[in-house]
């Protein structure tokens, strides 16, 4: 999933301080699963804005709405009849959501309510870790099913650097050296020799280095 975290409340309050009618829009996709942008969090943010307004003697109307997904135009369309009633829109979807809203409703003032962090998963309840860097050409099968691009601090593809220390990365004792884990796993699977096989240099043109990306699947285009 795409993992995000809430923006500091003060930052959001600063964004919308001049507006009296605010619409908060959540998303039932990834941000609901990582407890940052679903209907529950829409309610919490709305309540927080109302408490702040009450405390400061300001009048504010805060409306709550959660879309099935903010990254699909047909769901974004759901708010077409109400969005113009609001001076500001706070999207608490990942960074895709507020952009889709801005594109669909050009006159709307759309603000991001969360900081999008990475693509990953929940390793424990309340703890998420990065797993994918979206390089566009998956190679994890070469490395025991583990991605060194996303999980090595230097994205090294040819083995650990000199900063690997007793299984930990030099950037922090809390960060595993993923190459230590890859090597151990390949040894357990008796496949260590596969790491010695020659692989041509990875093409990064499919990653962000190739510029903004678009995917077209002709069989799905209507």
């Amino acid at each position: 999933m795409i993992v995000a975290e809430p923006k500091p409340i003060k930052e959001i309050l600063e964004m919308v301080k001049d507006f009296k009618k605010v619409l908060i829009i959540g998303c039932k996709g990834c941000v609901t699963v990582c407890n940052v942008g679903g209907s529950k969090e829409v309610g919490i943010l709305a309540s927080t804005l109302r408490i702040d307004a009450k405390k400061n003697g300001k009048k504010i109307e805060v409306e709550e709405h959660t879309l099935e997904r903010q990254c699909d135009p047909e769901y974004v369309d759901e708010i077409k009849d109400i969005i113009n009633d609001y001076e500001a829109v706070i999207s608490i979807a990942c960074g895709v959501g507020p952009q889709f809203l801005s594109e669909r409703f050009p006159s709307a003032r759309v603000f991001p309510g969360v900081n999008t962090k990475f693509m990953g998963g929940a390793t424990e309840h309340g703890i998420w870790s990065e797993r994918c860097a979206g390089c566009g050409q998956c190679v994890i099968h070469y490395f025991g099913g583990i991605c060194p691009i996303a999980r090595c601090s230097k994205s090294l593809l040819n083995g650990p650097c000199g900063g690997s220390d007793h299984g930990k990365c030099e950037i922090s004792k809390d960060v595993d050296c993923i190459w230590d884990i890859i090597v151990r796993k390949m040894m357990e699977q008796d496949r260590l020799d596969e790491l010695l096989e020659f692989k041509p240099p990875k093409s990064w043109t499919t990653a962000r280095d190739g510029g903004p990306r678009q995917l077209i699947r002709e069989e799905l285009v209507i």
């Binding site: 529950k40 309610g43 919490i44 309540s47 927080t48 109302r50 408490i51 009450k54």
Partner: peptide, 13 residues
């Protein structure tokens, strides 16, 4: 008890 349950009373005064 959710976070929202704890905020609502403050919202209501």
């Amino acid at each position: 008890i959710e976070v929202l349950h704890l905020l609502k009373p403050f919202e209501e005064g």
